[in-house]
Design a binder for these strands. Sequence first.
DNA 1: CTGCTCAACATTGTCGACAATTTTTAGGTT
DNA 2: AACCTAAAAATTGTCGACAATGTTGAGCAG
Lengths: 243, 243
Amino acid sequence: MLSRLTTVQSETAINTTEAEVPKGTRGSQSLADRLFLTLRREIVEGHMAAGSKISEPELARRFDASRGSLREALMRLESLGLLERRVNVGARVVDLTERGLLELYDVREALEGMACRLAAQNRTEEDVVELRQMLARHEQQEELQAGTAYYQPEGDFDFHFRIVQASNNDLLIDTLCNRLYYRVRMYRYQLGMASPRAHRAFREHSHIIDAIESGDGELAEILMRRHIRASRSNIENKLSKQN
Amino acid sequence: MLSRLTTVQSETAINTTEAEVPKGTRGSQSLADRLFLTLRREIVEGHMAAGSKISEPELARRFDASRGSLREALMRLESLGLLERRVNVGARVVDLTERGLLELYDVREALEGMACRLAAQNRTEEDVVELRQMLARHEQQEELQAGTAYYQPEGDFDFHFRIVQASNNDLLIDTLCNRLYYRVRMYRYQLGMASPRAHRAFREHSHIIDAIESGDGELAEILMRRHIRASRSNIENKLSKQN
DNA sequence: CTGCTCAACATTGTCGACAATTTTTAGGTT
DNA sequence: AACCTAAAAATTGTCGACAATGTTGAGCAG
């Protein structure tokens, strides 16, 4: 409804090397779509350096596409907040700043808090089961890597992602999953912040699921907000020591 | 699909903004920019009916622009959530639904609540002064129209807008002011919901300013959330009676 | 050497034409 | 008449070329 690029993730190559898309199946995506997905990945993972300028002719040659199609992809990246464009000047990959990261946390606290409240109010059996399974997998991974103090950021990510889905609010889902989360991932990849909060985060996740299961929206929201704020404080400390 | 149809066809020219833009002096904007602004206005104010299909060739002719520039404007509108596009099919103006409206309120409650908290924490003398002046103007307007039970929606809008600006969080500001608020206005224009909550809203606004002035972020957030939720309940009642 | 002017270059914005796909229409069969 | 088929029309996606704007660098005056 709100966005069409929610779930499908075409990987790597631009050309549809993937086993012959049978004509007009619903998976049909335009060249600009594929360029968009590829470039988004490159920016998020840092293969295109943050703050670097983008040359339309060069990129177009590199992907063997016309400038028009490329420009369409660039505009979508701009609306995602991953690029900044100025008229008659060009596009740059967005800069990663300490302030931007902290701002991101505040917005997430507000939105994910609300998402968690709604998830508790509209919860289904399936939601709760999946969240518990997910938590179990994370515990397993954590045990395997016990002592390393290294926490799979993707695990934490999946957890938050799943809760947002359960909120059943399309606008909220779109705003978080199709907009903010790519910026979150960009910071995680490039500032490489593996959280040392592994055990603590795990317990917090567990309590959040409890609140959702019991349908206590108010508590679920409070716990989620506290969870995110703790993560923010953690990062803030790290950053202040770094300087 | 909520309907309250509007069928005006404005034929304003794009290029004749205001008297001779002297080269690249004032806010140089591209043709696509101007198309974007014009179309956004037409959609928000309902001159392009919600849910109606958009013909690229027709619009391009109407504004005497090429399809390329028009398409750029359409894509920006899509990322604003005012249009929906499907590959090889085309674009439609987004539908106004009861569900969409309520979703909007929940997201606003979360974001504006946070904005209000931050505004209280980062408040400046100027912020407080301007908010009080604004409130005074609204009171005056309200007295003039006393008894009519008609409340200037723009007044309420300005108030919320100003508080968001005071949050000093660019991501939050962008998300609310450049994204969500256009959808809010679209619903206001087209469902024509003049709030009968004039006096009550006024008092609530006043208390919110008090909390901001005293730097009590927690209270400011609570009051703003309650304010928005009350507005939501009000609408929800209206809608349920209508059906 | 510093700072300015202006011309040559590179990049972005805009356009019209062609290709790919969808939608509509016409026609025939049961 | 209803229904499937296929051609025709219309619409969207993609491209290369040209115009408008910004950037760079050489030459010159102070």
